[in-house]
Write a protein that binds this DNA or RNA. Structure first.
Length: 595
RNA sequence: GCGCCCGUAGCUCAGCCGGAUAGAGCAGCGGUUUUCUAAACCGCCGGUCGUGGGUUCGAGUCCCGCCGGGCGCGCCA
C-alpha cells in the first residue's frame, strides 16, 4: 500500500505525459491555447514536433521560421530537451535528453496506471453493444459490436470514467409470431435439448419459408403475434422459455469471451413506456398522422442536405419521415429506442451514450437522435453512433459459409482454438496437453479479437484465419510472444537467483532509449483511443511496442549484462510486460506465460 | 435518382482537426542462433495515393466534376 501512496505522490509531481508537458510549455511560450505537440513523424527529426509556428504564421501573415525562432527563445525546455530545432517550413523539433528520460522513467515504473492521469472531469458512459436476438444464435454479425463495445468500455473505465455496459436484447418483434407457430406445431424436443438456439433457428426458417407460399400459415403466424402482444398466457410462457434458453447460450459465449454487462434488458422491457412516448410526441406536435401511421417529419431546422427527414428524388427534396407508430397501431424500433434512451437518461444520468452497431443503421440513429433532441431539448448528454463496417469473406462478399449460411460465433471460436492448438502443438510439443489447450484458448480468442479491432472500425475487412493466427506480422500472437519472452527472462532470472530491479535507469544503448520512449507513449495514445472510439490506434501502438521490444531483446542481453545495466534492463522489461498485458487486457485479450 | 462509405505497393491494410522524402504486414530476395522462447531480429525489392480540375507556402487528407465498388432509402430491427 505504501508503494501505491508513493506512486500517487510522484504522479502528482509529474502529472502529465511528455507531449502534454511540452504542450504546456509551448502554450506559455506562444500564447496560443491549442498548441499541439505530436510524436515526430521521423526519428531523425527528434522525438516530438509541433507545427504551431506555421499555423500562427498563416494567421498573422508572418514568416513561420522567424516566428518559430521567437517561440523557441521563450521556451523553457532546457531541463527535458536538447535545444529545440527549426526545420523545414517552420517545424519545431524536440529531442529529449536521455538523462531526463531515465530519471522520469522511475516515475512511470512506479505508476500502476502506466502514465494515465485521471481525467479532469470524469464522465459517465452508457455503452450499448452486442445486442443479440432471442432465438437466434450469435453469429459473425455480432462479433464486432461485442468486441468493440467491450474494448471501449474497458478503456473508458481504465482512464477513470464510469461505465454502464448495456446489452439491449432483441426479444420482441414480428419474428415471435413465426417462432410461436413453429414451436407449437413443429418442435423437435430432442433437438431443442441438444441445441436450443439451433432448433429455434430451424423453426424460424421453416415457418418463414412457409409463410411466403402459404397465406394460411401467414395468418396463423400473425394470430400468434397478436395473442402474444395481447398478453396470452400460453404464448407468454413459451416466449419466456425462448428468452431463458437464449440467454443461457449467450452467457456461454460471453463467458468464453470474458465479457460482462451491467445491464441486460430486452426491448420488451421498454414496452411499458411506448404509448407515453407516442403520446408526448403527438402532443408536442413532433409526430403526426400520415398514411395511417404516426410519423416525425422535418422541422426545417437544418439545411436540406443534412436533414435526416428529407431525401432527394429526381431533384426534389421529399419527406423521409421516421415512423413511431405503424398503421396497425404497433410501435416499432424507433419508438423502443426513444423509450430506451429516456430510460437510460433517467436511470443513469450519463454524459455520453455510445451505440455500437453496424454502419447500415446510420440513418436510423441520425433520425433517432434528431427526434430525441426535439422531444427533450434540455438534455445535454452526447449521443454517438459508433458504427463499423462489415466482415467479408475472401471473395469480398459478406462472410458466409460455403453453403451460404451465416457463420455462428460459437463455431468460429471453436475453430480459432483448434487452429491455435495445432500451431502450439507443432511449436512446443513437449508441453502437457492441458497447458497447450489453455495456451491455444488464449491465443485463438486473442487472434479473433485482435483481427477485429485492428482495422479502422469503419472499414469493411476480409476475414482470414491464416492472417490472424500468423506468427509474424501485426497479430495477437506476435504481441503475446513479446510478453512471453519477457516472462521467460524473469523465470531464468529467478533460477539464477537474480531479482534486482532498479529505479536507476540506464539508457545508454540506442535500443534501450527507443524502448523507454515508446513506453512513455502509452499514456498519450489511450485518451485518443477513447475520444475517437478507435481501438485500432491502441493495436498499432502495442504492435510498435512489441516490435521495439523484440529489437531491444536482440540488441541488449538482459541477464548477461553487468549488474547495474541488468537491473535497469529488468525494469525496462517489467514495464514493457505490464504495458503489453494492460494494453491487450484493455482490448479484452489475455496473455499466456509461455507459448 | 438521392444519401453515407470506400478506391493508397502484387495481396491485406494504416495514414482522422492539411505539414517534412506516403508507412506497415504478407508475398518475393538476401543475411543472423554454442548466449534470456528463431512464434524473433537485420537488410533489399516494391506506390503517377481511381481520375480531372480547384483552394493553399504546402493536398493521400479540404472543395467540385467524372469513373468504379459496397451499403441505405415509409410501416423489418
Amino acid at each position: 500500500m505504501r508503494a501505491c501512496v508513493c506512486s500517487r505522490n510522484l504522479a502528482l509531481l509529474f502529472p502529465m505525459t511528455i507531449s502534454s508537458q511540452l504542450e504546456a510549455k509551448l502554450r506559455a511560450a506562444s500564447g496560443h491555447a491549442d498548441a499541439r505537440v505530436q510524436p515526430a513523424t521521423d526519428t531523425r527529426f527528434g522525438d516530438y514536433q509541433t507545427n504551431i509556428a506555421m499555423i500562427l504564421a498563416k494567421q498573422q501573415r508572418a514568416n513561420p521560421r522567424q516566428l518559430a525562432q521567437e517561440i523557441i527563445d521563450k521556451l523553457d525546455t532546457a531541463e527535458m530537451c536538447e535545444p529545440p530545432e527549426i526545420a523545414g517550413a517552420g517545424f519545431i523539433n524536440f529531442r529529449l535528453k536521455p538523462m531526463w528520460l531515465a530519471e522520469r522513467f522511475a516515475v512511470l515504473a512506479a505508476d500502476e496506471k502506466l502514465g494515465i492521469s485521471a481525467p479532469v472531469r470524469p464522465k459517465k458512459y452508457v455503452i450499448d453493444f452486442s445486442s443479440p436476438n432471442v432465438a437466434k444464435p450469435m453469429h459473425v454479425g455480432h462479433i464486432r459490436s461485442t468486441i468493440l463495445g467491450d474494448a471501449l468500455a474497458r478503456i473508458a473505465a481504465f482512464i477513470g470514467h464510469t461505465v454502464v455496459r448495456d446489452n439491449h436484447i432483441g426479444d420482441w418483434g414480428t419474428q415471435f409470431g413465426m417462432l410461436l407457430h413453429g414451436w407449437k406445431n413443429e418442435l423437435n424436443h430432442a433437438a431443442l435439448e441438444a441445441d436450443p438456439l439451433g432448433e429455434m433457428e430451424r423453426l424460424y426458417k421453416l415457418v418463414s419459408a412457409r409463410c411466403k407460399e402459404d397465406p394460411a400459415t401467414l395468418d396463423a403466424v400473425h394470430h400468434e403475434l397478436v395473442e402474444l402482444q395481447g398478453g396470452n398466457e400460453e404464448n407468454l410462457v413459451l416466449w419466456r422459455e425462448m428468452q431463458r434458453l437464449s440467454q443461457a447460450q449467450f452467457d456461454v459465449i460471453y463467458s468464453r469471451l470474458g465479457i460482462s454487462f451491467d445491464v441486460t434488458l430486452g426491448e420488451s422491457f421498454y414496452n411499458q413506456w411506448l404509448w407515453k412516448v407516442v403520446d408526448e410526441l403527438v402532443a408536442r406536435g413532433i409526430a403526426r398522422e400520415s398514411e395511417g401511421a404516426l410519423c416525425v417529419f422535418s422541422d426545417g431546422s437544418v439545411p436540406e442536405k443534412e436533414d435526416p427527414f428529407l431525401i432527394s428524388r429526381d431533384g426534389q427534396w421529399v419527406d423521409m419521415p421516421a415512423l413511431v407508430q405503424k398503421a396497425d397501431g404497433a410501435a416499432n424500433y424507433t419508438t423502443t429506442d426513444l423509450a430506451t434512451l429516456a430510460y437510460r437518461l433517467r436511470e443513469f444520468a450519463p454524459d455520453e451514450i455510445l451505440y455500437v452497431t453496424d454502419g447500415r443503421q446510420q440513418h436510423h440513429f441520425r433520425q433517432l437522435f434528431a427526434i430525441f433532441r426535439r422531444w427533450h431539448p434540455e438534455v445535454s448528454a452526447r449521443l454517438a453512433h459508433v458504427w463499423f463496417g462489415s466482415i467479408l469473406g475472401d471473395d469480398g462478399k459478406p462472410f458466409k459459409t460455403r453453403s451460404g449460411e451465416t457463420i455462428k460465433l460459437a463455431g468460429l471460436l471453436d475453430e480459432a482454438e483448434e487452429r491455435a492448438f495445432a500451431i502450439v502443438s507443432e511449436k512446443n510439443p513437449a508441453l502437457p496437453e492441458a497447458e497447450r489447450r489453455e495456451i491455444a484458448r488464449v491465443i485463438g480468442l486473442g487472434a479473433v479479437k485482435y483481427a477485429d479491432l485492428l482495422p479502422n472500425r469503419q472499414s469493411d475487412y476480409v476475414f482470414s484465419w491464416d492472417k490472424m493466427l500468423a506468427l509474424q506480422g501485426n497479430t495477437a500472437p506476435y504481441l503475446q510472444n513479446a510478453y512471453v519472452r519477457i516472462r521467460s527472462i524473469f523465470r531464468k532470472a529467478v533460477e539464477a537467483g537474480i531479482n534486482s530491479q532498479s529505479s536507476t535507469i540506464i539508457l545508454s544503448e540506442p535500443a534501450e532509449l527507443v524502448l523507454a520512449k515508446k513506453l512513455f507513449q502509452f499514456g498519450e495514445v489511450l485518451p485518443q483511443v477513447l475520444d475517437d472510439c478507435r481501438p485500432n490506434l491502441l493495436c498499432n501502438y502495442l504492435y510498435e511496442l512489441a516490435s521495439t521490444f523484440h529489437s531491444f531483446f536482440e540488441a541488449c542481453h538482459v541477464l548477461k549484462a553487468d549488474e547495474a545495466s541488468r537491473a535497469s534492463r529488468l525494469t525496462l522489461c517489467e514495464v514493457t510486460a505490464r504495458t503489453l498485458q494492460r494494453g491487450l487486457g484493455l482490448l479484452g485479450i489475455e496473455v499466456p506465460e509461455r507459448m
